[in-house]
Write a protein that binds this DNA or RNA. Structure first.
Lengths: 177, 177
DNA sequence: TAGGACACGTGAACC
DNA sequence: TGGTTCACGTGTCCT
């Protein structure tokens, strides 16, 4: 007699299992750290690997200093894009941010309202502290400007940088009326 | 009658399935792009996400590796297309352009290959000629940079500017071998 | 109705 | 020998 009565979805289920196992296998291929050759362990390893990768990406972006719209924003300041279209009543304070890159180098971000002679004062301040400007990018818009310095400091960094930050802040500070 | 004959591993298998599904769920949590709420799609998405993350890590590491310490420059190179990569035989001379804006103001454009201390020398040169920097925009990419100054000159412009142009040219000039 | 996705219980294989 | 992992076929739910 027909002892072979198949469910209608027998083959479909076989194919489904095949695809699923294929994906498990493919997952193993892209995850370097495989603790055990089991489905459960493979998934756990994949999860762990994804977390590690995401942390690594964040760390690398932090080391790069990254873009004003991302890394700086994470530091808690207004991003360039946010400031780009000043509203009628917007009143921006000058802002100075100093982030160590290690090996005596820093990223210096200055956000200011443009005033005559102000840029010169900033350069003089850096010069007076024997700070070398390695690179500088500035974007200016609607009377506001945002400058990104890469600077290098000789001598006792800690003391110098605190003083420099204070000096720069006082320079770019919006004068009270 | 004992109609309930359980396999020995019935409960164990239940727990195993529970853990496996839990991992599928946890995987969904760390993968941002979920195309479909199915196991198979979840695994595919996870694989794709891992590949993307690993590529991102490689790209960031590449950016960190090519020019030590110049984070902003690397950021610039990141946003530049591949066509900006200089070819083997490309040889760019430093270039200085000075255009009068009237009323003692000038636009100064400098195109240079980045070298250590070079930017500082330019600033010192401007300072030595009592030139005020009113604004500055710089774009840098793959070791090259183009800076656009707006400067103001006190004193006898004609003489000063000729000298300044010459001095700047000698600074940014690519040293002959 | 057909087809897809899933959970289930079971037997087998492997330490 | 138990403990664990897996593949299998099936029933059920949902479009």
């Amino acid at each position: 007699m027909g002892k072979e009565f198949k469910s209608k979805n027998l083959e479909a289920e076989r194919r489904r299992r095949g695809r699923l196992n294929g994906n498990i296998f493919a997952l193993r291929a892209v995850v370097p750290k495989i603790t055990k050759m089991s489905k459960e362990a493979t998934l756990s390893d994949a999860i762990e690997h994804i977390k590690n990768l995401q942390n690594e990406v964040l760390e690398l972006q932090r080391q790069l200093g990254d873009s004003p719209g991302e890394a700086w924003e994470k530091q808690g300041s207004a991003s360039c894009s946010e400031s780009f279209v000043p509203t009628e009543n917007a009143h921006y304070q000058g802002q100075v941010e100093l982030i160590s890159l290690g090996s005596s180098k820093y990223n210096l971000k200055i956000f200011w309202t443009k005033r005559a002679g102000l840029f010169t004062k900033v350069l003089e301040a850096l010069c007076s502290y024997k700070v070398q400007v390695l690179s500088l990018n500035t974007i200016s818009f609607y009377g506001y400007a945002e400058s990104f310095f890469t600077i290098e400091v000789k001598g006792e960094q800690d003391v110098v940088m605190v003083e420099l930050r204070s000096l720069l802040s006082s320079i770019v500070e919006v004068p009270s009326i």
